[in-house]
Amino acid sequence: MYEIFIALYLLISLALIGLVLIQHGKGASMGAAFGAGASATVFGSSGTGNFLTKTTTVLATLFFVLSIVLGNFTAKQSKPDDGSDFFQSVPVTTEQAPAKKDDVNDIPVGN
């Protein structure tokens, strides 16, 4: 079920990106708003929205709902192993080889 939601999330996000990129912005025709017979608003009048606007709204709503659902699924999963028990399972040895000492300084030196 989680994998299905992830695949749907990916498809919706790609469709949402594509729809936003192909839409014509309101500010793109701002020059036409001044003296071109537009209404009194700065960016022209906007109606109820066309097909692209409505589809973008639906996809954005689905995107947010799926984000919440996937977050809920992730929160309920068990936490991954962070490896902290590895350090507790390593045996600690107390025997060490006697260190060689330098004749002059009595400083242990490597083999």
Score class of each variant (00 low, 15 high):
G31F: 13
V92T: 11
K100N: 10
V69W: 02
S39L: 09
I68E: 07
Q23Y: 00
S89E: 11
A28W: 13
G31R: 06
D102L: 04
L70M: 09
L11P: 04
S39N: 14
I68G: 08
A60R: 01
N105Q: 08
D85I: 00
V109F: 13
P108D: 15
A75N: 13
A99H: 04
A60K: 01
A7S: 14
K76E: 12
I6R: 11
F64I: 12
P91G: 02
K101V: 09
F34K: 05
V20N: 13
K26C: 06
D81V: 00
S13Q: 03
I17H: 02
L16E: 02
L62F: 13
T56H: 05
L59V: 02
M1Q: 11
S39Q: 09
E3M: 06
P80L: 07
T74E: 12
G37D: 06
A7M: 10
Q88P: 03
N72T: 12
E3L: 08
A97D: 14
N72Q: 06
K26G: 10
A32D: 15
T61Q: 04
Y9W: 07
L66G: 02
T57H: 08
A60H: 01
L10G: 12
F43Y: 13
L52N: 10
K76R: 15
I107V: 15
L16T: 04
V109C: 07
G47V: 05
L21D: 01
A28F: 14
S67T: 15
V104F: 09
I22V: 10
A38H: 11
T93R: 09
A28R: 07
L52Y: 08
A99M: 14
T94I: 09
G47I: 04
T61C: 08
T93I: 08
K76F: 14
K101H: 09
T41M: 09
L19N: 07
A97T: 15
Y2A: 04
F63A: 05
P91D: 03
T94M: 08
L21R: 02
S45E: 15
A28N: 07
I107K: 10
P98S: 10
I22R: 03
N72A: 13
A40I: 09
E3T: 07
Q88D: 14
F51D: 08
S13Y: 00
Q77L: 13
K100H: 09
Q23M: 10
G49F: 02
G83T: 00
I107N: 10
S67F: 14
T53I: 10
M1G: 11
D81T: 01
I6K: 11
D106V: 07
F73W: 09
Q88L: 12
F73M: 12
L8M: 09
L66Y: 02
Q23T: 06
G110I: 10
T41G: 12
K26E: 15
A15Q: 00
E3C: 04
L52C: 05
L11R: 06
T48D: 07
L16G: 02
G25S: 14
E95S: 10
A40F: 10
S39T: 13
F87H: 04
A28P: 03
I22C: 02
V90G: 02
D102G: 04
S89H: 06
T57Q: 10
T55W: 01
I12G: 01
M30W: 11
N111G: 14
G83S: 01
